[in-house]
Write a protein that binds this DNA or RNA. Structure first.
Lengths: 198, 198
DNA sequence: AAAAATCTACCTACTCATTGGTAGAACAAT
DNA sequence: ATTGTTCTACCAATGAGTAGGTAGATTTTT
């Protein structure tokens, strides 16, 4: 037995992340999943239904990952490094962030979808703000501005790096940015852990 | 007399930056410029011709802006703040970065266009690397990793912030990220100029 | 347990608007 | 008179979405 719905979600996600929301069609998806176009409409009546489902699934996966990082990693900088590593998978696979893709086409999207995407980002910012605040309290993080602004900056930097390095230097380039980002948050004098400088 | 070509470039740029490359059509453009669809093809035979012209014009404007910043502003951090302020215009107008938009839809674009976009980003990175290196030499900038990686990080952070804050907190949010970014580059102990903390 | 009704998943075969793009005529400027 | 610009009038292909039907599994009724 084959879970067509899950297969549709999987393939649609990679199509969107590769070519954008407006850049892929039900026909494309039908071909990669080996199903008729009309059958997709059975699972996802409209394209924006599909988009909503994609964001929900993507968001849920990130939720799980964030919780796991929080549970498994005590150090703030390491948490951020682990968070950054989540994006790395996208760079390696040549896929943009689903929500970044949708955010960019925002004006052509239904408002409800835009709200979902906004929530996705806000959630990440809140998570990071928390991580940073704990790190500051523990003395393992040096934040110049308020943690909130720094949290926004971290998400922005990673989203931007994923966007850019997919075209430029690939994983190599992304790792460099991640290292620079983490180094900037470390208290003075402490060197990086990833960029085996020692 | 009316410069139709320039008008087409201007309106096409805002359309792309608002809705994405695949998300706008010659019909849309024709309507906003008040011209027939076929007349656009006279100026830009194919859609990718138009895209190339858009990137070229955009790139040229940034070239000019970067040169002006370099000439008019001696301090490295202030240069970066001024560079960031270029993006702010986009946030205020609700427009994404043209090259970010195109980068995201990369896989659906002609390779030559992708090359143009890559060059755009590389140029910015090189410019920032230079600014940072000079700043380090002058003692006005503290770079933890190599300047090259930090330069990539700065572009990524600004591109990401533009992408994100257009949906979230707008100019307010963007300015926060820019401030956090600049603060992170300042030598220890020196506070921000924008975030009137004092 | 058998029969009837319903549901799920998929199909073929459309609709109809929109897509990028073309051909060739009309108009405008020099 | 020629060149550059815009037009009308198309085209074939593709877009999302619909109509209506079929095979098989499940549930409900008897």
């Amino acid at each position: 037995m084959r879970d067509t719905r899950a297969e549709l979600l999987l393939q649609a996600e990679t199509l969107v992340r590769r070519r954008g929301y407006a850049g892929f069609s039900y026909a494309d998806l039908a071909e990669t999943v080996q199903i008729r176009k009309a059958s997709i409409h059975h699972h996802f009546p409209t394209k924006s239904d599909l988009a909503h489902a994609l964001v929900a699934a993507y968001d849920a996966r990130y939720d799980a990952a964030l919780a796991e990082i929080r549970a498994g990693e005590p150090d703030a900088i390491e948490r951020i490094a682990a968070y950054g590593a989540l994006y790395l998978g996208g760079v390696e696979a040549g896929l943009g962030c689903l929500c970044a893709v949708l955010a960019i086409e925002g004006d052509a999207l239904p408002a409800s979808l835009r709200a979902d995407i906004a929530r996705f980002f806000e959630k990440h910012i809140a998570w990071l703000e928390n991580v940073l605040a704990e790190g500051v309290a523990a003395g393992s993080v040096r934040v110049s501005a308020e943690p909130r602004a720094t949290a926004r900056m971290v998400v922005a930097a990673l989203e931007g790096a994923l966007l850019m390095e997919r075209l430029l230097a690939g994983p190599e380039g992304f790792r460099g940015t991640l290292a620079a980002l983490c180094d900037g948050l470390r208290p003075a004098g402490v060197s990086s852990g990833r960029t085996d400088t020692i």
